[in-house]
């Protein structure tokens, strides 16, 4: 299926200036006491940064590494293992819509839903709308199988998106809702 070429071309966006906001740095420092190793704060720190900046720029990887006494390569190694985190060339929209494609949802029509979501938003899977409001993702089992086909907005489940009209409604609601991504930690 071809898409109208309206999704964000990140290379045209201005770079995100560093350094990290003071409140993010302070929250990262406040988590250090929870673990016997600084490295354990890697995932929480990545969550905090991506929640705020909608990606983890290279300079933020270096800043996290500096706080945690790691090499930037170690932070990047962890970050890139999880397909979840985005770098600056591939930043997220204000909200993320995940459409589940695993068995319980697929048996109730999820594959065509993902296609529909892609059509309504005008972006391919993984892409972000040109106004920067929504990024579309596919998900492996969300653990919401009693409400299949299920979707997720940021980190909250939405049950029973059982047909095209419900997906249309969901997309409409997302595009017009004020941005307010859920917090990481």
């Amino acid at each position: 299926m071809s898409h109208p070429d309206t999704h964000v071309r990140n290379r045209d966006l201005p770079p995100i200036p560093g350094p990290l906001p003071v409140e993010i740095r302070e929250r990262i420092f406040s988590l250090l006491r929870r673990y016997p190793s600084k490295q354990a704060v890697t995932l929480p720190a990545l969550h905090l940064v991506q929640d705020k900046l909608r990606c983890v720029p290279r300079w933020a990887v270096e800043e996290i590494a500096d706080i945690l006494d790691l090499s930037p390569a170690e932070v990047h190694d962890t970050m890139s293992f999880y397909g979840f985190f985005r770098d600056e060339s591939d930043r997220l929209g204000a909200r993320r819509l995940w459409v589940c494609r695993s068995l319980a949802c697929a048996l109730r029509g999820a594959d065509s839903l993902l296609e529909k979501a892609s059509e309504f938003l005008g972006v391919p899977v993984g892409g972000t709308t040109s106004d920067g409001t929504v990024t579309l993702e596919l998900a492996e089992c969300l653990g919401a199988c009693e409400g299949a086909p299920a979707c997720m907005i940021d980190d909250e489940h939405v049950h029973d998106i059982s047909d095209e009209s419900r997906m249309r409604e969901l997309v409409h609601r997302l595009r017009n809702a004020p941005a307010g991504p859920a917090s990481g930690q």
């Binding site: 673990y35 190793s37 490295q39 354990a40 890697t42 929480p44 999880y82 998900a139 990481g184 930690q185």
Partner: peptide
């Protein structure tokens, strides 16, 4: 007791994968 969030990877349910992930490494 501290809550620690994953980042959407199935392998973190394997107990030693979970431990590696908790330690801030690839799972």
């Amino acid at each position: 007791v501290f809550v620690h969030r994953g980042a959407a990877a199935y392998i973190c349910g394997e107990e030693t994968g979970l431990i590696e992930s908790l330690e801030g490494k690839r799972a």
